[in-house]
């Protein structure tokens, strides 16, 4: 098992180096002189221009620039925002909990709904339930989520008035930030109704963000489950005279979940992509909104750093999924 983890870790390193190369080149691909682009229409004096070039290390050879860049990353320095002048890492850390909170709730929604739907659809193959699950999941899978957000807002916030339109908390509450996770902070504050309000604000964004992952999980679970139910060892299990429920839960599900876990892992990328749109629409102060706004403001260090961090998160999550895959599947674990 230990060897297995080490082997997986070794594979991640070149990918990570590739990502630093990518973010490094990305910035240098901006047409025109980077300083002028960053300065925008105001222009910049020649002296200031030279000073900025030196400050950003742009007067060095490319290779030196790259190594400087990697060195800075290694020491945790991702540069400073051109606008706010705060370090990118610091900005990221303040906003990240909001995204994690939203993405976790969305993932929870996707798994709690998608997994059982997929399982039941497979077990009751060909039934009305199966057909509706397949129809809904294909629709969910095809959903332009920014429109889905608008539509849900139209129905639930505007017409029915049950959910708030934007933000993380009603303005009437003022909560000290402890963990950055609104659900936890409101609980810690002890203020009455704050937790409910935070939860209230989470519902729509979570559903919106969780829709595509839910659809993917439901479809994957169903097809994986169908495949497993046709396996010889399921027949063996039934030949032992165990109850159908036990066959499904103990023998089928465990095997069927192996590919589903990978799929759930892959949803992290989808969630972070979706967070860009969802956060923008619901005015959710997380990294998705932050990145989009930085792109709009041409705040390139933030864009560069943000992409690097997001990609790193995805690599780490995929690594964890791979390791979990090994835990669940003895065949993988033992192949060295």
């Amino acid at each position: 098992m230990f060897q297995f983890i080490i082997k997986k870790l070794m594979l991640v390193i070149p990918t990570f180096i590739g990502i630093t190369l990518l973010t490094f080149t990305l910035i240098r691909l901006i047409p025109g002189d980077p300083i002028e682009v960053m300065a925008g229409e105001r222009g910049v004096s020649p002296e200031r221009h030279a000073a900025l070039r030196a400050e950003l290390g742009l007067d060095q050879p490319l290779l030196v620039q790259y190594f400087d860049y990697v060195k800075n990353i290694a020491s945790g320095d991702l540069g400073r925002s051109l606008i706010t002048k705060t370090p990118v890492t610091e900005e990221f850390l303040t906003l990240f909990p909001a995204t994690v909170e939203l993405a976790s709730c969305a993932a929870l929604f996707a798994i709690l709904v998608g997994l059982p739907c997929g399982i039941i659809a497979a077990v009751k193959r060909g039934s009305v339930f199966d057909h509706s699950v397949m129809t809904f999941s294909l629709t969910g899978y095809s959903m332009p989520i920014f429109w889905w957000a608008l539509l849900l807002m139209l129905v639930f916030s505007v017409n029915l008035g049950i959910t708030p339109v934007s933000g993380r908390l009603d303005v009437t509450y003022w909560i000290d930030e402890v963990t950055g996770f609104m659900l936890i902070d409101t609980l810690l504050s002890g203020e009455e109704g704050a937790f409910a309000s935070a939860l209230h604000h989470l519902v729509l964004p979570s559903i919106v963000l969780g829709t595509i992952p839910m659809a993917v999980i439901a479809r994957m679970t169903r097809s994986s489950m169908l495949e497993v139910l046709g396996e010889d060892y399921i027949r063996t299990a039934r030949s032992k005279g165990m109850a159908p429920m036990r066959v499904i839960v103990v023998h089928a599900l465990r095997n069927a979940l192996i590919p589903v876990i990978t799929v759930i892992g892959l949803q992290v990328g989808i969630l972070l992509s979706g967070a860009i749109l969802t956060e923008t629409i619901f005015a959710w102060p997380g990294i998705g909104k932050w990145l989009i706004e930085s792109i709009g403001r041409r705040d390139y260090p933030v864009v560069q750093g943000g992409i690097l961090i997001v990609a790193t998160i995805i690599i780490v999550v995929n690594l964890l999924v791979d390791i979990m895959y090994g835990v669940v599947n003895p065949r993988i674990r033992h192949s060295k």
Binding site: G18, L22, V310, I314
Partner: peptide, 24 residues
Amino acid sequence: MRAVDIMLAMPSLLLAIAIVAILG
């Protein structure tokens, strides 16, 4: 394949946004 892995490690929309942001 390494290059492909790297691209897959990025949320596709974010990467597309970044590319558009650079190209205009």
